[in-house]
Design a protein around this nucleic acid. Sequence first.
DNA 1: GCCAACGTTGGC
DNA 2: GCCAACGTTGGC
Length: 153
Amino acid sequence: MQYWLFKAEPDVFGIEHLAAQPKKTGRWDGIRNYQARNFLRDQVAKGDAVFIYHSHCKQPGVVGIAEVVKAAYPDPTQFDPQSPYFDSKATPDLPRWVAVDIKLTSQFKQVIPLSLIKQQTVLENMVLLKQARLSIQPVSEQEWQAILQLADN
DNA sequence: GCCAACGTTGGC
DNA sequence: GCCAACGTTGGC
């Protein structure tokens, strides 16, 4: 089993939206970056554990944990002209982008803020800190445990 | 809202 | 294939 961090903008689709889905399970779609896509398509597997991270908001940080319940499949939004994620170069025969389904398993009482993560020596090599703009990224087991210890519950 | 970092596009 | 122009991300 592998660990991941998925970024979300809470104004668009954040942990609150996921929590409001039936069975707290929803589609993680709209990923339009090749490096993130490759992780999602080739490595993210059913049963993997995911930190949900809120970016572009007042208090950026890790807000909860989800589990991958369905591995990569073609992201339907790429075929939908009404969707902001529509891609005219993608076809059902040659899909370009993928989505996964995740189920919310834990919502932290308090955000684990980026500012706190930055203070941890064990976390200084996190992809989150090294490569700021990657929206799907691997997390090592050591990093996973260190962040869990920062959770207030 | 600003701006640095970095990804993508397209002319040549 | 290079690289300038442009667009997006995301912390602050």
